[in-house]
Design a protein around this nucleic acid. Structure first.
Length: 470
RNA sequence: GGUGGAGUGGCCGAGAGGCGAGGCAAGGGACUGCAAAUCCCUCUACACGGGUUCAAAUCCCGUCUCCACCUCCA
């Protein structure tokens, strides 16, 4: 089965057919850089990272555009709060997001455009909308005329007449209709502004994505992604303004579900502590990634430390196999993804089923490894290759970048520790051979105190860092 | 008021008319000097009430509970 994706616009799972054969253009709504990234923020980046990896593994060339919203009301508010310029705030948190993406192994997008760098494109888009009668300027603001666009509400399944009247503060009186949304906000004293034919001002929230998506991906492109909450109003408005301007815009709309905590949504306004930096004090990045990636992207994740620890344990089982097997048959054995794994991902990115496939392979592989010298090395190599190929698509291959620690100083430390531990293990083996188990166990306990765990395999002892959940 | 989701075993978490995903935990067995790791076996499910069907966790009707969106959100 070829790739099928659930398209929010049609509320159905559709076969994915790219506009240009062999190529995929994808736009993802990225961060509004006004605070420290938390686990919820990262989910969209992670989900679409897996999709990108899967598309590439399927032989497609992917252009991924993930924007940075570096000007908006909250950034301005934050700047006042922190007592520094808005651009310093935006730059600071943009770096924090970049660090968080990197810590979770999210591949960098093809392009990461900032809103403030694309005012020209926004002005052009507004001009087109005004010419076509879909937008109007009032006192330096520019609004989209919702009534002028018949399909408004189609993406999110809303009908304008059923919507709650917008309690939209100060702008309401200037709008032709309360549901009209701001494309451009006229400048107020002390706020940053850019010049336009309608006066100085700054971008409204929705305009930037339409302007940047079409600037980099063309007037019509394949996939537009983001969190479920963005469906309305953000994506509805993007779609309206772009289609009204004559662009085809996105062909598929994908939305990931939320990360919640104790039933509460982890939004910026709740100010909870699931900040990525803090979670990474407790678990490795690869384990956090596994936790977030092994759930289906359209299912809610109720974040808890217990669930995170369980996911970590499940991942370690797979990781353990990969490490042990590669020690036996070599670390260069990356194969093709197993057929069942491919089928799972082709079915709307069914990562849970894909993960189950990997667990099955690991069980098989462990059984082979348990045979020791009598094992079928080719069979192990084949299983290892399949497991690693699958892990690579999920971004969780422990032997691949960025998780492998084979290079640089870390490798030198590893070699040094390895030499010391091997000496200890040799001593322990000698004691065991002499049935001096008190000494043997004392050595094992000493290593355990140092955070090193021992396994007695058919090929002799093997050591690794202990990674029990705390 | 409008729109859309969800309720699965001790826990996490899939599936979407028949043949119980997977993991974690638990119990038993194998292996081990003892462990650890690993393998094998076992146990516990589909919110509630009706209905359709040879067959319902899955479809339909109703009820309850929870959640999301309706111009700040990933």
């Amino acid at each position: 089965m070829a790739l099928h994706l659930y398209d929010t616009a049609t509320r159905s799972t559709r076969a994915f057919v790219p506009l240009v054969p062999g190529e995929v253009s994808m736009y993802l709504c990225g961060a509004t850089v006004q605070g420290r990234p938390h686990v919820g923020h990262l989910r969209a980046g992670l989900v679409f990272d897996v999709l990108t990896r899967w598309l590439r593994a399927s032989g497609l060339r992917v252009t991924l555009c993930r924007n940075v919203t570096d000007i908006d009301d909250k950034i301005l508010a934050r700047a006042i709060e922190e007592g520094r310029p808005w651009w310093a705030v935006a730059a600071h948190y943009e770096r924090a997001f970049t660090d968080a993406y990197t810590a979770l192994g999210v591949l960098p997008p093809t392009i990461e455009p900032r809103a403030t760098g694309h005012v020209t494109q926004m002005v052009q888009l507004m001009q087109r909308l005004i010419e076509r009668g879909h937008a109007y300027a009032v006192d330096g603001d520019v609004y989209f005329d919702v009534r002028s666009f018949a399909d408004y509400g189609a993406l999110s399944g809303q009908r304008p007449d059923d919507m709650e009247p917008a309690a939209d503060s100060e702008f309401t009186s200037r709008k032709h209709d309360p549901r009209d949304f701001a494309l451009w906000k006229g400048s107020k004293p002390g706020e940053p502004s850019w010049p336009t034919p309608w006066g100085d001002g700054r971008p409204g929230w929705h305009l930037e994505c339409s302007a940047m998506a079409t600037a980099y991906l063309g007037s019509t492109f394949d996939i537009h992604g983001g969190g479920l909450d963005l469906r309305f109003p953000h994506h509805e408005n993007e779609l309206a303004q772009s289609r009204a301007a004559g662009d085809g815009f996105a062909q598929y709309w994908l939305h990931n579900a939320w990360v919640t905590q104790a039933g509460e949504k982890m939004s910026k306004s709740l100010g909870n502590t699931m900040v990525v930096d803090e979670v990474l004090q407790r678990v490795r990045g690869i384990e956090l990634r596994w936790y977030l990636v092994s759930a289906h992207y359209r299912s809610n994740i109720e974040f808890s430390d217990d669930a995170l620890a369980e996911a970590g344990a499940a991942f370690r089982r797979i990781e353990h196999f990969v490490l042990r097997a590669s020690e036996r048959v070599g670390a260069d054995a990356v194969g093709d993804v197993p057929t069942a794994f491919a089928a799972a991902l082709d079915d709307d990115l069914g990562t849970p089923a894909a993960v189950a496939v990997l667990h099955g392979l690991v069980t098989e592989g462990n059984a082979l490894l348990a045979k020791g010298a009598a094992m079928d090395a080719d069979a192990v190599r084949a299983l290892l290759g399949g497991v690693r190929a699958g892990l690579a698509v999920l971004g969780c291959d422990p032997l691949a970048e960025p998780w492998s620690r084979q290079g640089g100083e870390a490798a030198e430390y590893h070699a040094a520790v390895d030499a010391l531990v091997r000496a200890e293990l040799a001593e322990r083996q000698r004691a065991r051979a002499e049935r001096d188990f008190a000494t043997a166990d004392a050595i094992r306990a000493r290593l355990a105190d140092a955070g090193i765990q021992i396994e007695d395999t058919t090929d002799g002892p093997r050591w690794s860092l202990a990674r029990e959940a705390e």
